[in-house]
Write a protein that binds this DNA or RNA. Structure first.
Lengths: 355, 355
DNA sequence: GACATCTACTAAAACGCATTAGTAGCCTCG
DNA sequence: CGAGGCTACTAATGCGTTTTAGTAGATGTC
């Protein structure tokens, strides 16, 4: 089964079969093989089958370098994650996303080039290098920002891209597709849930300022809160880390007239926040209700279990990957809306204490 | 600064500068350029400098496909993560590891091909495909198992590999390097800590059976517990998920003579376990001490904060990446020991309740 | 001053594939 | 029966790089 029988390390290195080998064995020219294997016209069904069989038999796979050099495609797409090391790996979001992405890519034998860097400038440098080296055919962009240099850069490099989590593209970014979820509606459903329980004073512990969805959620909170008649609702921004989540929670609870509910922009901060409540002896949800934006094992594992906004993250990844492949096949730039996240009420939300 | 001025999407697509362009501009042959740019002899210092300057000026980067086709190297290494979707993204381990890996790779302009798959068979298939497509120069292997087919496969494919978290290579795997931490000593330090506090009955909630480090930890527990005079210590295996961690904890606490301390093999299960304790009203550490193997934000964020075995995961990644690069440069197969993890006592461990 | 030895280069081939431009052989049609 | 048009192929070229072989010209040697 293995190409090298037995001990392959010391014996002659295994040679990969090439199109030439197939051609020789099938008694045809190399071009015929190429045609046959790529479904191009120019070979009869009979020889096509024969060639296919030979290729199968030899375990042939196209040499990615040769194909990339000859054709236009490298068969790779890229994903770079710009996060300071400190805030890395605390969220389950990325691996889920990536796993969805891969499901789609693997089917088409497209590989994923992955890189984590410290900041967005380095991220841009990576794009430039990938472009110059002709390493990738397109990229997936995460953590879109309010004023984001990346779409423009990628457009100028002519590198197809799909922004994940971006709003519908404005007239400034007509070159990149996007896949996004309706944060406004999601925020509305969160607030409706809290309003229904009787809450009127809430605070939103948001993620990084500058990120597009942070700003959208903050805006949504404001308008929606106004509509429902909440008073004094507001957002504070953090870096998504447990540390800042806890710190924000402490400050909020120290205020003279603390809120009866807090909405956290990710699971990690929500957990950190509920730990702060526990350490102060504030009962959840008796005196404080907590909502996590984004579910994860975390939210279901701590006590009390956290009410969370659940979204199908790997589905999100699948959608984005599919759209990128479509773009690579010459499809139009699109803006795709993912399924609306739904609120899953658990034990951390309840009616506020009556004063 | 950007290769295409202004709106690059509709104008002529940007052409990447090639060696030929540099050659023309510098008035030399293409080979001279290649020599100059790769530090090979055969060009005078003067022209070498001139060529380098031109390349810089044009923003030239070697076309990865051409280089891969011509030379032997693709400039990529691979990492595949075989995890059932269910247990994905709950640990912070991987992103940390990958971030360390990249630090080293990026310096050498080596890209990382990343893939997540469902099981180890698919993982092997990925290796075969990567090999056949000549996509990667080497791979990093994670989650080594007791009877692992991968080292042999990779050796037979002549694909340099570094196993991360493996024991010192036995005589059966003389072809792959490995980077590992001393689990035995780590387990000893955990048990010493608990013993000192007065614990005599402990249970170890381990990870997946079949994983090399799971088996090693289980063995270490047994021998070390025997040495220290623990009675009835044992290990149970899980799939690393929060669900199984919680379930195992429940079963353990339901026993007639429950342990006074539990050691969990990852952070997620430890958190799940402490939630179970909380839901049953069992005080931690008053009635039950908890230790997490592997630290993360999680452990510091919940209440009480969990005593954890801290290791420098990204350092681990750096070590592994460096070793892989050394292998690619023709270095010998080595077995590298990483820094010993250290126990960080926090609030979740204390003296057991006196009966 | 003929010959070997450097140095600094150039020409050409190779890597594995896709693709374009042929080219036989056969069929059709007027 | 010869022009035109198919079908099923082959030959040749190019992609951008590395590498091997080769070649002028300068320098040294006896």
């Amino acid at each position: 089964m293995t190409p090298a029988g037995g001990d392959g390390a010391r014996t002659t290195p295994v040679r990969r079969p090439t199109i030439k080998d197939i051609a020789r064995r099938a008694g045809v020219s190399e071009s015929a093989v190429s045609f046959a294997l790529n479904g191009r016209p120019g070979v009869s069904q009979g020889t096509r089958d024969r060639i296919r069989r030979m290729a199968e038999e030899l375990g042939w796979e196209p040499n990615s370098a040769a194909r990339a050099l000859s054709g236009e495609r490298s068969g790779c797409v890229g994903l770079v994650l710009a996060r300071p090391a400190r805030t890395l790996g605390v969220e389950s979001f990325f691996l889920q996303l990536v796993s969805g992405v891969q499901e789609v890519l693997a089917d088409r034998k497209v590989a994923l080039l992955f890189q984590v860097v410290e900041d967005i400038e380095t991220e841009c440098a990576v794009y430039r290098r990938w472009w110059a080296e002709k390493r990738v055919d397109g990229v997936l962009v995460v953590d879109p920002r309010a004023h984001d240099p990346r779409p423009e850069l990628l457009a100028s490099l002519d590198l197809p891209a799909v922004v994940i989590g971006a709003p519908a593209p404005g007239e400034d970014t007509p070159h990149v597709s996007s896949v996004w979820a309706d944060d406004t509606a999601a925020m509305a459903s969160v607030l409706a849930h809290l309003h229904e329980l009787g809450h009127r004073r809430i605070v939103h512990v948001a993620g990084m300022p500058g990120l597009a969805h942070t700003e959208r959620r903050i805006r949504s909170l404001r308008t929606e809160a106004a509509r429902l008649g909440f008073d004094g609702s507001r957002s504070v921004t953090t870096d998504y880390s447990d540390a800042e989540g806890a710190e924000a929670t402490r400050r909020i609870l120290d205020e003279p007239d603390p809120p009866t509910a807090i909405v956290f922009d990710n699971d990690v901060m929500a957990v950190a926040g509920s730990a702060v409540a526990a350490e102060r002896g504030i009962p959840v949800p008796g005196r404080l209700s907590i909502v996590a934006w984004d579910d994860s094992a975390l939210c279901r594992v701590i006590h009390p279990r956290l009410t969370a906004l659940v979204r199908d993250t790997s589905g999100f990844g699948r959608l984005a990957a599919q759209e990128l492949l479509d773009r690579l096949d010459g499809g139009p730039v699109r803006s795709i809306q993912a399924e609306l996240p739904h609120l899953e009420p658990r034990e951390s939300t309840g009616p506020p204490a009556t004063l």
